[in-house]
């Protein structure tokens, strides 16, 4: 394995991981506040991509291109998807707030499946891709010479990584430095005492459902620029994988979701990449899923509450 090959795979892993991390954050935020695994999150991500597609088509149609076209698409898709998220919470989850936890989980599963099939019924089976929002040159490969071998990347990949990191920093600031963020953290510590302190539960939950889906929408738009196929089922597998990432990191913990996302990206890429070594040739890409999930299993056996998860003390 040459150095260029290693760095190339590292770049691949970071880019894949940053998207997983963004989606995983949505799971973790909602979980932290509501103790709800929002299984509809993957499909909210899909909805974000679809909304992004319609916004972008509109913008490009009226002649708004790079850079405003991209920024506005990202913004509008985040806003509209956040509205969708808040709406879902209001209509489907709020009536169940006192219900057993798992009935809400199954409602979330149902909401996700409903979104998928509404998208399929309403928009048809055709795959779509975003109209060109970025300049051509951003999509073309740029090569850097590393010790005689070339490392290729596109500015798009760099852009995705930068925007993801930026969003994660913004989120961190919101959660750490604002009152709402403080309330969110407080609720995740004790959801019975905090409302007694005068913290408006409904508003904090609404804020959570603004943050999570808007991150998913940003991930959706960026995902659709990097992987230009938008379809109703696109959120299914990515959603599950991001959920895994969130849990491996320690669900409910924001750093955990980021780290979990990157870990999943790294594992998926490097299980394939390491097969390059003759000694590790059993790690062919055929066995990727097998090895990757076995690794996750081991992580959870060693650290049963994920990497950042604190073992919950049980009251006896």
């Amino acid at each position: 394995m040459t150095l260029a090959f290693f760095f190339q795979q590292l770049l691949n892993a970071v880019q894949l991981g940053s998207i997983y991390a963004l989606i995983a954050l949505g799971y973790t935020l909602v979980y932290g506040v509501l103790r709800l695994i929002n299984f509809a999150h993957g499909d909210i991500f899909m909805a974000g991509a679809f909304i992004g597609y319609f916004v972008a088509t509109l913008l490009v149609g009226v002649g708004i291109g790079w850079p405003w076209g991209f920024i506005l698409t990202l913004l509008f898709s985040m806003i509209l998807t956040a509205l969708l998220g808040v709406g879902i919470e209001r209509v489907a989850y709020r009536p169940l707030r006192t219900a057993p936890r798992l009935s809400v989980v199954v409602t979330a599963l149902g909401v996700g499946l409903l979104l998928e099939h509404i998208a399929l019924g309403a928009f048809g089976a055709s795959r779509r891709n975003l109209p060109p929002l970025l300049p051509e040159t951003w999509m073309q490969s740029v090569e850097i010479n590393i010790m005689g071998e070339y490392l290729s990347f596109t500015w798009l990949k760099v852009l995705i990584i930068v925007i993801s990191l930026l969003l994660m920093i913004i989120l961190q600031v919101i959660v750490r430095r604002t009152k709402a963020g403080m309330a969110m953290r407080a609720i995740s510590y004790d959801k019975f005492a905090v409302p007694l302190m005068g913290v408006p539960m409904d508003r904090i939950i609404a804020i959570t459902f603004i943050l999570g889906p808007s991150l998913a929408a940003a991930a959706g738009v960026m995902y659709a620029t990097q992987y230009p196929v938008i379809e109703p089922y696109m959120g299914l597998l990515v959603g599950w994988q991001a959920f895994i990432a969130a849990v491996v990191g320690g669900i409910g913990d924001i750093r955990g979701a980021m780290v979990g996302g990157f870990i999943l990206g790294f594992v998926q890429i490097f299980v394939v990449a390491l097969g390059q070594f003759p000694a590790l040739s059993f790690l062919s890409s055929t066995y990727r899923d097998l090895v990757a999930y076995a690794l996750l299993l081991i992580i959870l056996v060693v650290k049963p509450t994920g990497i950042f998860g604190v073992a919950t003390r049980q009251k006896v």
Binding site: F5, Q9, N12, L16, L236, L237, V272, Q276, S285
Partner: peptide, 18 residues
């Protein structure tokens, strides 16, 4: 190889390029 519904093939393609 990859698995159905995968969207990122960069690891495999990097190997192919090599």
């Amino acid at each position: 190889t990859f698995t159905t519904k995968d969207k990122d093939f960069s690891a495999q393609l990097t190997k192919i390029k090599a």
